[in-house]
């Protein structure tokens, strides 16, 4: 069973979200997602300064035999990307919730968090188990 961090929010498409107190949010993909993809060989992040919209494509992760879009969990401006991933995409495999973070969004509307259908860790566990059936 893959690791699911209780303090994070998740999307059904397997991204995780961690909102900091300053109103920025870290985005990555879950341990379950990196396991399913296998060894990642490339991570395409959005450009710093671009705006992303909740639910829309913001990047791509590639393994040797698959490619999967990364969706933005919230709307806002991309204020930072994890540049290390360009050289070491395996960080996502090794540490999906830490060194494997992908980009940071400055939330354009913190109230959006309430209206979005983000999963709690518990709901995400249920969703992963359902998928494994």
């Amino acid at each position: 069973m893959s690791e699911i961090r209780p303090e994070l929010k998740y999307l059904v498409s397997h991204e995780w979200l961690r909102v900091e107190s300053d109103g920025t949010a870290f985005v990555g993909i879950s341990d379950h997602a990196q396991e399913a993809m296998g060894d990642l060989v490339f991570v395409e992040t959005p450009e710093v300064g671009s705006t992303v919209t909740a639910g829309e494509e913001a990047g791509v992760v590639e393994s040797v035999k698959a490619a999967s879009d990364i969706y933005a969990p919230v709307s806002g401006e991309v204020v930072a990307i994890n540049e290390e991933l360009e050289e070491t995409p395996e960080a996502v495999n090794n540490d999906p919730y830490g060194d494997g973070w992908m980009f940071q969004i400055k939330l354009s509307d913190p109230a959006e968090l309430e209206s979005l259908e983000l999963l709690s860790a518990e709901d995400y566990v249920a969703k992963v188990e359902e998928e494994d059936q």
Binding site: F42, S63, V64, K65, A66, A67, D69
Partner: peptide, 12 residues
């Protein structure tokens, strides 16, 4: 770099 190609990436 096969993930760019049609047999994996399909419409994209």
């Amino acid at each position: 770099l096969q993930a760019r190609e049609q047999h994996i990436r399909r419409s994209k």
